[in-house]
């Protein structure tokens, strides 16, 4: 019985999902729509932390955050910090979250995404000029709303490539 799961070969689809998330987060949108764009990379990270906690963890979150920092032109370490924190919390909560119904997962994700935005806002506040509008939390809400659909797609990907 083959169990073809030596880690390396299965890393590719995971990296691919992160790359797609990065692409989605920089595709040019119109001036107004930009504020509605969910944090695709954060969603992706939370998903993998919940469903693949032994492969994706705090350090992966940190590395992905660093790349996100560079690609969005923010302060180097800003996303890295926020992503490590939400990766840590999602891993702590993964045993419960994994078995929740989709809407309850979405609520969990909402909390994580809001925490992510708050951390980012806090860093912006320390280093310069924080955006003083509640619009800043919008991506978190949009992210939670699309979570059921997103998780569904990701589960399909996961089963297709039988990533465990």
């Amino acid at each position: 019985m083959m169990h073809p799961q030596s880690g390396r070969s299965k890393l590719k689809p995971i990296i691919a999902t992160f790359v797609i998330a990065l692409i989605l987060s920089i595709i040019p949108l119109s001036e107004d729509l930009r504020f509605f764009r969910p944090d695709w990379v954060a969603l992706c990270l939370i998903y993998w932390c919940i469903f693949l906690p032994n492969r994706i963890g705090v350090f992966s979150g940190w590395a992905v955050g660093l790349v996100t920092d560079e690609i969005t032109g923010s302060l180097l370490g800003q996303h890295a910090l926020a992503f490590s924190v939400i990766a840590f919390i999602s891993i702590q909560l993964q045993h419960r979250t994994r078995h929740y119904p989709a809407w309850q997962q979405a609520l969990n994700v909402l909390t994580l995404l809001i925490l992510h935005r708050l951390l980012m806002h806090w860093i912006l506040g320390i280093t310069g000029f924080p955006p003083n509008t509640l619009l800043y939390m919008l991506p978190a809400i949009i992210g939670a709303l699309i979570w059921p659909l997103f998780a569904n797609v990701m589960t399909n990907v996961r089963q297709r490539y039988s990533i465990r």
């Binding site: 979150g61 890295a80 910090l81």
Partner: peptide
């Protein structure tokens, strides 16, 4: 990771 990020920032 948090300390590392803060240092980098």
């Amino acid at each position: 990771a948090v300390i590392l990020s803060i240092t980098i920032m």
